[in-house]
């Protein structure tokens, strides 16, 4: 795929098209399209999202409906992915679980990225804020996660549930909890990169022509710290899906009748030798989602890098 980037035909195409005035984002998209892995990843990601959004309307079995006569069954016509120890349909659970897991994964990851990048960029760029923000990061790194969760959930669960209803309330809570406990690494890494970037010539040049700080950050700094952010995003989505399963396991997440991928994987671990197919589906779903996000991240990073784009 490296040769695709240096494809002379692609080059000519680009030059001819570029006669029309285009936005920067159009360029990014054009470059993104040439990245085979990214396109594949995106197609797959969209496919999974469509599947979990539309799937439950096509496969209408209720995911929480036990069928005590069909417990621990392998794949069959009635249950294409088999059933669990209570006779609940695995396919319906996978579809319903995917909705929650994907939503939690994406939203929590975004939240953690936004907070992490914001803190990282501010700390790296403004020397006055550096000490304070980084000590704040240390504090969050040091806090024991589990008691923190217990406290947050004790304080806010009932309030949020009253305000937004059961499902939405817990969703907000979980996304918030995962988001605010996972941004620290991103912040540290981004700050490090910004510190290094700040001393580069092009930043100096930009500053000397009087570019205001926010413009500096948006135009010059952020695009250049994209790669660690993208890696964090990929790892973050997997992290959020798994953390959610740990939370439900501790009784801090969604109620037990809301399946999620992480939870399905956890519950089925003990059934590994009894019905191996039960373990494979959630494991596969999580891995493939993470993989597709990873390739999308790769593509986006390349597309955002003007050096590669211009090549």
């Amino acid at each position: 795929m490296t040769d695709l980037n240096t494809n002379p035909i692609g080059e000519i195409e680009r030059i001819t098209v570029s006669e029309n005035p285009r936005s920067q984002w159009w360029d990014v998209w054009a470059q993104f399209k040439t990245h085979k892995g990214a396109v594949l990843g995106m197609t797959f990601f969209v496919l999974i999202i469509l599947l979990v959004l539309i799937g439950p309307y096509i496969w209408t079995l209720a995911p929480d409906r036990p069928d005590l006569l069909a417990r621990n069954k392998g794949p069959s016509m009635g249950h294409p992915l088999g059933t669990d120890q209570l006779g609940r349909d695995s396919l319906a659970q996978m579809l319903a679980g995917g909705r929650i897991s994907l939503a939690v994964g994406v939203v929590a990851m975004t939240l953690s990225l936004v907070v992490g990048s914001l803190v990282g960029v501010l700390a790296g760029y403004f020397k006055r804020l550096d000490g304070m923000l980084m000590r704040f990061t240390d504090l969050f790194l040091a806090l024991p996660l589990l008691p923190l969760l217990l406290v947050i959930i004790m304080l806010f669960r009932d309030t949020l549930r009253a305000a937004f209803g059961l499902e939405a309330g817990i969703f907000i809570l979980i996304v918030f909890v995962i988001g605010i406990t996972s941004w620290m690494q991103t912040a540290r890494i981004v700050r490090g990169d910004v510190l290094a970037l700040k001393e580069q010539e092009f930043v100096l040049a930009a500053r000397s022509i009087g570019t205001p700080p926010w413009r500096m950050i948006m135009r010059h700094i952020l695009p250049n710290v994209m790669s660690p952010i993208m890696v964090s995003a990929t790892l973050g989505i997997a992290n959020a899906i798994i953390t959610e399963s740990a939370l439900s396991f501790l009784g801090l997440g969604f109620p037990s009748d809301f399946p999620t991928w992480g939870r399905l994987l956890f519950d089925s671990t003990n059934f590994m030798t009894l019905s191996p197919e039960r373990v494979i589906w959630p494991g596969l779903a999580i891995s493939l989602t993470v993989l597709s996000v990873n390739y999308m991240g790769d593509g986006l990073r390349d597309a955002l890098d003007p050096r590669i784009r211009g090549r």
Partner: peptide, 25 residues
């Protein structure tokens, strides 16, 4: 990429038990 993504996205509670089932049982 593939191996490391699988390694990261499959949690240790799963890989650990899997290894035990294979190598101890």
């Amino acid at each position: 990429t593939f191996v490391s993504m699988i390694g990261f996205s499959v949690p240790t509670f799963f890989t650990g038990v899997l290894l035990i089932v294979i190598f101890s049982v």
